[in-house]
């Protein structure tokens, strides 16, 4: 084999670079955070769909909601159980943020952990955080 040493060295460097994220983060793994529910959300017990589904599918639901509101002019969502919601992220009492009042504790906690950066808040205005110590 020609250039055996060069190839081996090259391979070692390649493997080192590819696996960099793994060994760099070794031992630093933190447990998944739980979003903190507001009193209002706790009292309501269930959101649009059961908690488990909400966790998995809220992005698709939000995507559908926004198309339904913006494009079809339908703003009210009635669940199978007869509960109604205002299909809005941040407008009014029965919107998402009307109940989940604290963006930092509810949205950001998991989004930061999962390193996702949805652009919702580039346009939608987040509700004012009520407790000053949470603004840090």
């Amino acid at each position: 084999m020609y250039d055996k040493n060069k190839i081996v060295v090259g391979l070692v460097i390649f493997v080192a670079i590819v696996t960099f994220p793994f060994w760099y983060n070794l031992g630093k793994a933190s447990s998944a955070p739980e979003p903190k529910l507001s009193e209002k959300a706790k009292a309501a017990k269930e959101c649009v769909v059961p908690k488990k589904d909400m966790k998995q599918e809220h992005m698709q639901i939000l995507d559908l909601w926004r198309d339904t509101v913006v494009r079809d002019a339908n703003r009210i969502y009635k669940t199978g159980k007869g509960k109604t919601f205002n299909m809005s992220l941040s407008t009014g009492e029965d919107s998402c943020m009307g109940c989940h009042e604290n963006k930092a504790e509810f949205c950001d906690k998991c989004h930061n952990y999962a390193s996702v950066d949805p652009y919702c808040w580039d346009c939608h205005i987040a509700p004012k955080e009520k407790k000053p110590e949470e603004n840090k």
């Binding site: 769909v49 589904d53 599918e57 698709q60 009210i76 969502y77 159980k81």
Partner: peptide
């Protein structure tokens, strides 16, 4: 390939199993 079956459950299926009616959307 973004979403799978669970999403369908949310919006389209329910009626079939159990007594719960389908979710509905409407205007104010």
């Amino acid at each position: 390939g973004i979403g799978t079956k669970p999403v369908l459950d949310v919006f389209a299926s329910s009626g079939g199993h159990g007594a719960e009616p389908k979710p509905e959307v409407s205007q104010n």
